[in-house]
Design a protein around this nucleic acid. Sequence first.
DNA 1: ATTAGGG
DNA 2: CCCTAAT
Length: 765
Amino acid sequence: MVLERRLDYDFNGHQVQVKRRARSARRRAKFQRRVEDNQMCAFDLLATVAGKLFLQEKEHPLTSGDKSSEKIQQGFVKEECRDASEAFKTELSNEGCHRRCEHGFVKDDSKNADKPFKAELYVEGSSDIKCLSNSEVQSENCHFKEHSHPKIDGNSHVASMVANSSCLERLGAERLADGKNHNEVGNLSSKVELGLSSKVELGSSGSPYTIGCNLGGDVTKVKDELHKFAKAPVVTSTEMRCLDDPVGERSPVQLSSGGNAKLSGCVDNMPYSTLSEGYDNVPVVSRDDDENFSGCDNPSLETKSFRPISHIGDQSIRKTLAAKYCKVAQQSKHDTLSNSGEFMLIYVITCFLVSHAFCSCSLICFSIGNILVEVVNGNLNETYTSRKNFYKRQRSEMNIPFKKRKIFNCGSFSNSNELVRSGGTYDKKNGASSTSHGTHKDTGMSSLGAHQYSSLGSKDSHVNLRIKSFRVPELFIEIPETATIESLKRSVMEAVTAVLGGGLRVGVILHGKKVRDDSKTLLQAGISHDKQLDALGFTLEPISSQSPTPVCAADSRHVPTVDKPQPLPRYPSSAAIHQRNQSCSDVFPEHRVTSLGNLVESDQDSALSPVNTAVYKRLADSRALVTVPEMGVQALSLLPVPQKSKRPETVQRRIRRPFSVAEVEALVQAVEKLGTGRWRDVKLRAFDNAKHRTYVDLKDKWKTLVHTARISPQQRRGEPVPQELLDRVLTAHAFWSQHQTKQQLNKQHQQQQHQQQPQTCLLLQ
DNA sequence: ATTAGGG
DNA sequence: CCCTAAT
């Protein structure tokens, strides 16, 4: 309605920007007013979430540390939330609160247990949920700085958005500072400090970006960290930083009061520099807070062209927000000013705006306290939960109209086939959510977020995975041109069957890293119902047909296929092999020519092009690297049996590769023409493209063909060769044998003549 | 490197 | 298919 319209304007960066471009003083004032209005609206919208928290906090002022523990135990019990729209109840029992503590949501520090909630943020869109380590983040920071495309105009939308969020955030900090000044009672200093440390961190390395909303934290520390790893102090002047501050590394204060959230996704064409610039130029009004925010440390970085934009927006927003805050605070009629609400407000707004600024996330899901907030394609959704019964409540169907309302596909990221989405126990709720929204498809994440929160009360958590499909690893099929389509199909089918029939191994990838330890539990590996399962992927790897062994997975992966049996006990059964692998005293199973091997071999041998050759080499090398050392190290160290190991470096036996009928035909044809004994020519003539068919192979095949032709059809094995071909084989063989003998005779004759000739010559002479 | 032949 | 002797 009104909000909608205003927001539309507010979030329409284009309009805003256009107005900002050419403005006189009067127009500026006018514009400023409008911005204020818009921001107020935005604030209204977003404050419904955070304001609620604020009010909740009022109900239970968190003053002294002594009462904090009690507070925590009490939790948010039957809060009357005086939301602007409707009143609602939330219930969170002590148990629920405790469970939360167990889940790390609350850090029950004796010192700082005053804020029994912590925000968790999940974002989904066309985004890749990514957990960044500190180092990674730092490196991304550098990237962030390196980008310097001064294309502010082109993306005013984004810029303004970010600026706004920044302003909001800053305002929050300001307000918090004010709160400190006005509230000298109690130990608010710590809170204020936390508030000042509110930070939105943003980083990007080109395609993936990470936004970490770090509310509460030792700013100095953070700053130092940033400085430590930042090559240049450029980004320092921005409020948005890329940082991943593990909860565990925070100070107790931070833990108690801070909200921590991570947002990640990918932005392909996002002018990061613009963002940073926008931040750089946001004037910082706060006094000592500035240092904490590290804002405008580098005034020289300010760009005048951009400054007015952010400046106006910033100030006006700040004012607006300040006013709003005062209102809320007054309404609450509580003497003690709790910063948690503000914290959360800042947090929410920041996250919201930032995420929307990036417009790459179709869904944002995060929980604050007992409120689950979903922003789906611009629709703000709140879900209030309690332990016993949680019910979701749709926030007014506020369609926050921002330009990029659709689901944004970053292109670089797609829900690949191997990606796993979480569905899960929360489908019910999710369904409700999705139906209520109706538009967004990405209910998976929504359910994830909801699940993540709601599952706090349930003990038995299951990870629900949905694998849409698997991609079959690359297959190489080599087939003569003369082959029929039928045979081609058959070949493909054989290859596929061979792969699927045991030549594959499932690999688990989490956050881009392969999870090798199969003995880990999902939880240990970091796969849990309450985590971003988007980071989980599966792959099909062409490896041993052996079932993955729980232990020594890395080893079992490369079960070598040594053709020469070792002088060691043999374990023909896979179970035995399994056991051996478990004990890590594996003797390499002999003659384990698996279909996997077939696959690999096919990869190698089907070198129809230089590329394939490269593949061949690579595979061969990798395999050699894998198998040979393993044999040497493992077998020798663990099994000091005097291995003959005549050829420890022996190349693995080639995979059996039955000749197809087409190949046989080609072979017969060539031999008919060239005869036996010229296998090199046969190879060049008929199998030049088949790298895996050596002339020796052809010779052997001819041998077997002759043999096959001579035996009764009942004795033959394998793919039946047409009798016609076999007949030709026999004919050709006979012919060339005769020819050969003839030649030999001729030779002998010639030799005899040669021997005799000199004699005759001599005789003649 | 090829060929021939045994395994 | 491998191995190897002989060419």
